[in-house]
Simulated scan of single mutants.
Amino acid sequence: MITVPRITLDALIELYDVFFIDQFGVLRDDRGAYDGSTSALQRVKDAGKTVVILSNSGRSGEYNAKRLVKLGFSASSFDHFVTSGDVAFSILSAADSPIKSGALCFTISSGDDTNLAERLGLKVAKTALEADLLVISGSEAERISMDDYRQLLQPAAQRQLPCFCTNPDIHKLVGGSIAPGAGSIAKLYESLGGDVRWLGKPYREIYDFALTLASAADRRQVVCIGDSLEHDILGAQGVGLASVLVQTGVLSSSTEAERQDLFLSVATPTYLLSAFR
């Protein structure tokens, strides 16, 4: 049995100077802020810590920050909001980008979001049949079946369109339950023979981006707080950062035996925190 020590938020404040905090499952769900999370985030910032919200969202950090403030979080309670969408834009807009301005982009997202394509100066493709590349930034699997997504993706896979997944989350929180996330759709594309470039947690680029933004030279002073072993904890482990698994979000209904299996097969957090409050 793997024993992971429990810790309090006050103890974390004493131990670390830079906090990378996940959004969904830690601070909020799709319905709003978790009880106590707004004051807890302000408490970390008031202690003089550098706070970076680190989210697997295909939308920009600016968009997400405004949405967080609307949910009751103070804009003064965090220094930066970094998303996988921001990292994707940074990489795909660079001089050595594998895509060309004006290319036709077919986007699978939530709420018909085509933000990344627009930021990159790409044209919107209505179907995969006319597209030059594919972006998977979100999921509406709560209302669109995975079989329907398979049919959407099949023409792209047959044409071997390059795919960029800007939200690797395998699961998403919807109305208190869990549904397949954008990462599950990207894995489906891979199963059809498509090639996917993954951008976001647990991959290194998003951590390098956040570490630079936070001017965090000493990684021993950085802690990552998240609800996903596959993304938050595995990602932190991969870049040598301490991690805290909160028992809200995607693992809130898991048993101790199920968590133990995941500790062995996926990643083991440095600490456990019952909730971010």
Rank of each mutant, 00 (worst) to 15 (best):
R59C: 09
I53W: 05
S228L: 03
S55G: 10
L161H: 11
R197E: 15
D227N: 09
N115Q: 05
V87N: 02
Q260H: 07
D35S: 14
A157Q: 04
F24M: 07
R159M: 12
A210I: 05
V52E: 02
V82C: 08
T212P: 05
A214K: 00
S101V: 06
G238N: 15
G25P: 04
D30P: 03
L153G: 03
D132H: 11
K123R: 09
L122P: 03
F78S: 10
G226D: 00
L245P: 09
A216T: 07
L68F: 14
F106L: 06
G200Y: 04
A267I: 04
I136G: 04
F78D: 03
G32L: 01
G249V: 02
P155L: 09
A210T: 11
L133S: 07
Q221R: 13
R220S: 14
D22C: 06
L161A: 11
L199A: 13
G200R: 01
P202R: 00
A103Y: 07
R43W: 10
S57R: 08
K123L: 07
R67E: 13
V196Q: 02
K123V: 04
F81P: 00
E256A: 12
F106E: 04
V18Q: 11
D232V: 06
A214P: 00
F20A: 05
Q160T: 12
Y189N: 14
D17H: 13
G226M: 02
S228K: 09
